[in-house]
Design a protein around this nucleic acid. Structure first.
Length: 209
DNA sequence: CTCCCGATAT
DNA sequence: ATATCAGGAG
């Protein structure tokens, strides 16, 4: 099986087991942007615990701009790197208000200029808020699964993304990320991967080794 | 490469 | 008690 065939078959099988959506809870692009900043080096579950209250207090970038850093911190204190993230959120909110009329920009270039937003986060936002597929979100799960499936030998997330963009059909980029993230989180875990529960056991090069 | 931080698993 | 999880900035 070629890498292209393996990628397509991976999507086909994962679709049957996982939903094509994030575990992060959000109801508009602004909320997803906030959630994704908080999600860096943090589990989605943890993020959801704080965003529930956060979104009640901060309903728009303007609400964040008008708040003190200390108040923003108070809502996200149980999140990793909360001091930095509070500063990022405030800066992002200021930029959204001043430069984008309070809206979330819709390109990877604009999104990655925002503090706390790298390529992974930008790709997540573009697809899951707007349905735009400019790239493939490569987080720790996508990186690990792609390695194990033999779709890449690179270690740097940007290079892995380049490899995957050549292999996965462009109209499936967003779906591929969403599905593979779930596989990595629950089945193809960093240690003790659950081969017996994996829909890809029979086609995974790392298993037959 | 270091810093930013805390929860959960072993 | 120590390891692991989980991105981005400088």
């Amino acid at each position: 099986m070629t890498k292209e065939e393996l990628a397509k078959e991976t999507i086909r099988r994962l679709e049957k087991v996982f939903p094509n959506k994030l575990e992060l809870e959000f109801s508009n692009p602004f909320e997803l942007l906030v959630a994704v900043v908080l999600a860096a080096q943090t589990t989605d579950k943890k993020v959801n615990e704080v965003t529930k209250e956060f979104f009640k207090r901060f309903k728009s970038p303007k609400d964040i701009v008008e708040a003190d850093i200390s108040e923003i911190e108070s809502y996200i204190r149980s999140i990793n790197y909360y001091r930095k993230k509070a500063v990022y959120l405030k800066k992002i909110a200021q930029i959204l208000v001043e430069k984008y009329g309070g809206e979330v920009p819709r390109s990877i270039e604009e999104l990655t200029k925002l503090p706390g937003i790298g390529r992974k986060s930008a790709n997540i936002i573009l697809y899951n808020a707007f349905g735009i597929q400019e790239g493939i979100a490569v987080d720790t799960h996508v990186a690990r699964v792609a390695q194990r499936l033999g779709l890449t030998k690179e270690k740097d997330p940007e290079k892995i993304e380049q490899d995957l963009m050549r292999i996965v059909p462009k109209e499936e980029w967003g779906k591929f990320s969403n599905l593979v993230i779930l596989l990595g989180r629950y089945v193809c875990t960093a240690q003790n991967p659950k081969h017996s529960k994996c829909p890809l056991v029979d086609i995974c090069p790392s298993v037959s080794l």
